[in-house]
Amino acid sequence: MHKCTIPNIFSTMKSSILQFTPGAKYRIEALRDSYSYLSQRLLSLGLIKGAVIEIANIAPFGGPIEVKCRGYNLSLRRDELAILTLTPFVI
C-alpha cells in the first residue's frame, strides 16, 4: 500500500501531517481563498464544504492524486488538494 504525506498547513488547528491512503474518506471543511481561480473551479465541481471525497489512487513520484467525489473521479496535484481543509470522515 503506497502512502503519501502532505502537510496540512491550512487547518485552523495546529499543523498536522495528513497521510493519504487509497480508500480513505475525508470531509471538506473549508477552502483556502475561495475567490481564487482554483477554488472556484473546485467549488463548481462540487468540492464544497460538507462534501465527502474518497482517495482513489496516488500517482508515483509525487504525482497527482485521484479522488472520488459525487460519483466521478478527479485527479489533482498535491498542492491543489492542499487548498482544501480536510478532516477524516468515518461512517
Binding site: 481561480y37 473551479r41 473521479n73 478527479l74 485527479s75 496535484r77 491543489e80
Partner: peptide
C-alpha cells in the same frame, strides 16, 4: 499551472 483533470470512466 493547474492540473485538475477529470478521469472519465
Amino acid at each position: 499551472s493547474h492540473f485538475l483533470m477529470e478521469m472519465p470512466p
